[in-house]
Write a protein that binds this DNA or RNA. Sequence first.
DNA 1: TAGACCTTGGGTAATTTCACCTAGGTGTTA
DNA 2: TAACACCTAGGTGAAATTACCCAAGGTCTA
Lengths: 204, 204
Amino acid sequence: MAKSIHIALIDDDEAVLDSLGLYMHTQQIATAGFSTAQEFLTALQQHKQFDCIVSDVRMPGMSGLELVRELKSRNIGAPIVLITGHGDVDMAVAAIKVGAADFIEKPFDESRLLASVRDAIEESQQRENFGEQKDLPAKFESLTARQRQVMELAVAGLSNKEIGSRLDISPKTVENHRAWVMERIGARNIAELVRLAMKYDRQS
Amino acid sequence: MAKSIHIALIDDDEAVLDSLGLYMHTQQIATAGFSTAQEFLTALQQHKQFDCIVSDVRMPGMSGLELVRELKSRNIGAPIVLITGHGDVDMAVAAIKVGAADFIEKPFDESRLLASVRDAIEESQQRENFGEQKDLPAKFESLTARQRQVMELAVAGLSNKEIGSRLDISPKTVENHRAWVMERIGARNIAELVRLAMKYDRQS
DNA sequence: TAGACCTTGGGTAATTTCACCTAGGTGTTA
DNA sequence: TAACACCTAGGTGAAATTACCCAAGGTCTA
């Protein structure tokens, strides 16, 4: 349910990496620090996944802006938040145009960055959800009859015990069906399942 | 969350009361048995509340049909399921017309009655909900700013811990706000809250 | 200023959910 | 027949929710 957040921090200044990493940690966000864009790209090639990428703009080697372009050309979906100490309007415009999620000037409040990161992740997930919505009918129709029964009662707000007595099966079995439903539909919690189920109901 | 169900059983045949009461008990449904409609009405006057009333039709004194009329004239909302051993189509039609929720001929399967009772309760609750829907905006707007924040994040599927770190308050406080929200909105569980919140979003 | 309400957060205990696992019985299909 | 999917249901352990209780401090208002 929790869905831990994991972000990448890219900055050639170690002090920045440390302080941001520490702050994010206090916010239950895992971080991986990289001194250069190249280092980060190497990690990517090793199948590492990040929910968001926070990168400095001015760095030796590949710049943050170039990194954004590179990632976009690779079709990496993770949102990228750029931070910089020497930004100007043009640079900011360019960054957003090529697809950066945000562009923040140093010095900034850590909470400001956090909010930006969260917004970016949320937005990208909503994009994902839009993609998924087309498969909604397919997903719901892939449920077995039993799973559908359980799903409907769960969405109606019944506990596993109540569903069990309603369907005359053990609460444990309900639990199992429920787990399957969550996985098949791709919902991370009941709230999401309810939302998707309502969407599906209205669609079809 | 559980919302225990409590129904009234009215039949002049003690054996019927006993067996139905026993069966309902196995289904986590509490029952109160009455030998005559009058007895039941007396209980009603003592502020007893029932989610559903199951009554025989042919009884000494007031008949089941008369009971339905009586209750309707008193504006009692609880659904009434009639059961009878000597029914005919006309009687059934009349029963439904005056507002009985269902009309079942003996002998019947206990599970058949159970399903009928549950459907009736669900329907009557939906009627209630329709009534409540008009108050939906009022309810949501009665939330304080903090409660609304918590509500929105909860509906989005975040755990109390996540909401806490997002709002920089302790999970415990989130819990308290959440409880208030549930009470104010009148939702019995998250699923219901999500549904109401979506309804509200679409309405306004 | 006293009362009402909101926000904050602590405690305790019961219940529920979640994420794993194993495993038998059934029915379908390659 | 063997593989596969499904339903059933048990176990364990961690995490979360729910329902209560309590109290302190702030703000606003009659």
